[in-house]
Design a protein around this nucleic acid. Structure first.
Length: 645
RNA sequence: GCCGGCGUAGCUCAGUCGGUAGAGCAACGGUUUCGUAAACCGUAGGUCGGGGGUUCGAUUCCCUUCGCCGGCUCCA
């Protein structure tokens, strides 16, 4: 029996008998480590703690503090879930059950649907199985033999997976009565799973194919400690409180009307004023960034969409065409063809480039009935769209300007974190893409260089590009850490060619310009939805529909209160007078619930001294301020678009 | 589109094992004139999402349709 040399992450190495396990390695480092160990990484491969080490290797013990720890733990949690389901529902057939970013799920095929009550029973059974501390036992099967076994068990879905994915000898894990085709690794035993909760049951399709078997997916989450679990559950509660659909109703910002149709947004006065503020800011910035503002029709001849290709490859996402006289018209799903027509309306010189055409362009896209979601997924929306026509050598600086512009958006609306993704072509399938290999490399390099020059970390996503060009997506991260994809900067090789765009270059000859599609907010609707959730309805002063409310203490203070309101209104401040016959407390409560940033209490003392008693929505009573002073303070908060004050 | 759940007053919800419905808040009328998160009394308000069926009788049971919610899939 030989020995193997085990190198630990700190660089030290030690000899062990061949076939020693990672658990024994952990034990030799310290009993404490062995106790918390979940799995191990041997030469970069994740394995079970009791996997034998057969040759010299680098070994790292995976514990709850390792990045991989939680993923493995949740994968094991998914197995625990399946084990519990099979105990209670022998008619359920397990499909797949992976960990996710926030927990885990397991898909089952079963005739009858699981109910909420079933979830509670399953969770109780999981608890029981966890307390029984059942080991996760790794077993190897030759493919044929394993197939036969799963077939005898009636696990037809597992058989399908084994047929497709299994190595000649594959691994499976046994947890009590539950046997699963699984690569692993898993934690040592169910007793280690301390804090978990089942969250919901929903539908899924077998292998994500909607024509395939409908499955029932049970979602759950697990954490190493009860506290982490509680924190997560609280965060879910917090997210629920911020739900823009609920706040949209409570704050009277927008609605969706049954009578009008799903996915179509009605902006109420209070949402409307916020939209106006956003748009005013954006327009001013667009002009400052050298964009031209254009407006294009909402419906155009279908023929135009045939040229652009949308009538073909985008048809499933378009409203049907309408008959007009002897022609067919199409409600626009995109703004690009309109802008292209403006470009094409006369000859263009290289001296004019880049041309940056911006439009708050309202588009209509057909979304399948089950997918609409408040403001975040709708059928009619307004993109803050722009198309940049330029020469290849101008591309980098244009892209940089777009990314900087996106950063300005983030800053202005109080987001401090973002993530960037660069989607490139799949190098294996050049035939799927418009444009030559050289052009693609040039464009991808331009995007990449820009991000590198700007020192922006990004995720490189090969194969994620759309067929017409590579793109940069910016996801902003909101106040409670959720990412939202809004900004997109897309390169386009396709449309300039399809429409035969040209400019006359210095050599006097026609050349084809390149085109960049770019949206910063994405769509005004979605952006608004994200903003509502980000601020939890408590907008900064410049965006608040009502910036201050004046509250006379009793009827005899109404005249003074009215004067206060008029003076603020004259300074362009959105102020309301609440002189309803309600107690001060009640009116304060209403203003708080409406997230009005400032409440101005006016009684005898204030009238006497010519000022207001300021109450802030966040910190409460802020004491007396002379009216003139408060007015300029408020004006400044608005003019500087201050997010925190 | 698919799977599951749900549609009762403006809002949030209760209720009817088949005999046409209630609460709180909001609205309206009155009393009260109040100092930092809900004063008091009263009034009015519903073809129980729409259509069809079963039934002496349907808000309740069945079918269908529209919409919403949780997901799948897809995207700004």
């Amino acid at each position: 029996m030989g020995s193997v040399k085990v190198t630990l992450p700190d660089g030290t190495s030690k000899d062990f008998p061949q076939g020693t396990t990672a658990r024994e390695v952990a034990q030799s480092i310290g009993p404490g480590l062995a106790k918390v160990a979940l799995a191990a990484k041997v030469d970069g491969n994740l394995v079970d703690l009791n996997a034998p080490i057969e040759s010299d290797s680098a070994v790292q013990v995976i514990t709850p503090s390792s990045p991989e720890g939680l993923v493995i733990y949740r994968h094991s949690s998914a197995h625990l879930l399946a084990a519990a389901v099979l105990e209670l529902f022998p008619d359920a057939h397990p499909g797949i059950g992976p960990p996710t970013d926030t927990g885990f799920f397991y898909d089952f095929y079963r005739e009858k649907a699981f109910t909420e009550a079933d979830l509670a029973r399953i969770e109780a059974k999981m608890k029981e199985l966890a307390e029984a501390d059942i080991p996760f036992e790794r077993i190897y099967f030759p493919k044929e033999e394993g197939l036969k076994l799963f077939d005898q068990m009636g696990e037809f879905l597992k058989c399908e997976l084994i047929q497709e994915k299994a190595e000649p000898v594959f691994s499976a894990y046994r947890t009590g009565k539950f046997l699963d085709f699984c690569r692993g690794p898993h934690i040592p035993s169910t007793g280690r799973i301390k804090a978990f909760k089942l969250l919901s049951v929903a539908a899924a399709h077998w292998k994500g194919d909607e024509n395939s078997q409908p499955m029932q997916r049970i979602y759950g989450t697990s954490f190493f400690s009860k506290k982490d679990l509680d924190d997560y559950l609280n965060q879910l509660e917090e997210a629920k409180k911020r739900d823009h659909r609920r706040l949209g109703k409570e704050l009277d910002l927008f609605s969706i009307q049954d009578e009008a149709g799903p996915g179509l947004i009605f902006w109420h006065p209070k949402g409307g004023i916020i939209r106006k503020e956003i748009e005013d800011w954006l327009r001013a910035e667009l002009l400052a960034h050298g964009y031209d503002m254009v407006f294009t029709p909402h419906a155009m001849r279908l023929h135009l969409w045939e040229i652009s290709g949308h009538a073909n490859f985008y048809r499933d996402n378009m409203f049907g065409p309408m008959d007009v006289e002897n022609d067919r018209y199409q409600l626009k799903p995109m703004n690009c063809p309109g802008h292209i027509l403006i470009y094409k309306d006369r000859r263009r010189s290289y001296r004019e480039l880049p041309i940056r055409m911006a439009e708050l362009g309202t588009v209509y896209r057909y979304e399948r009935s089950g997918v609409m979601h408040g403001l975040l997924r709708v059928r009619g929306f307004t993109q803050d769209d722009a198309h940049i026509f330029c020469m290849m050598e101008q591309l980098e600086s244009e892209v940089q300007d777009c990314v900087e512009f996106a950063q300005l958006v983030l800053k202005t609306f109080g987001f401090d974190r973002f993530e960037v993704e660069l989607s490139a072509r799949d190098p294996e399938h050049a035939e799927h893409y418009a444009g030559t290999v050289e052009e693609w490399s040039q464009a991808e390099n331009a995007l990449m260089n820009t991000l590198k020059r700007m020192n922006i970390p990004y995720k490189y996503m090969p194969g994620e590009a759309v067929f017409y060009g590579p793109k940069i997506d910016v996801k902003l991260v909101d106040a409670i850490g959720r990412p939202w994809q809004l900004t997109t900067v897309q390169f386009d090789f396709n449309l300039p060619r399809r429409f035969g765009l040209e400019y006359t270059a210095a050599d006097g000859k026609p050349h084809t310009p390149v085109m960049v599609h770019r949206a910063l907010l994405g769509s005004v609707e979605r952006f608004f939805g994200v903003l509502i959730e980000h601020y939890a309805g408590a907008f900064p002063v410049w965006l608040s529909p009502v910036q201050a409310v004046v509250l006379p203490i009793s009827e005899r203070h109404t005249d003074y209160a009215r004067k206060v309101a008029e003076e603020l209104r004259a300074a362009g401040i959105r102020v309301e007078l609440d002189d309803r016959n309600e107690k001060l407390n009640a009116r304060i409560r209403d203003a708080q619930l409406q997230r009005v940033p400032f409440m101005l209490v006016t009684g005898d003392r204030e009238a006497q001294a010519g000022g207001v008693a300021v109450r802030r929505r966040d910190t409460g009573d802020a004491g007396f301020r002379p009216l003139g002073e408060f007015k300029s303070y408020l004006r400044e908060l608005i003019d500087t678009r201050t997010n925190k004050w």
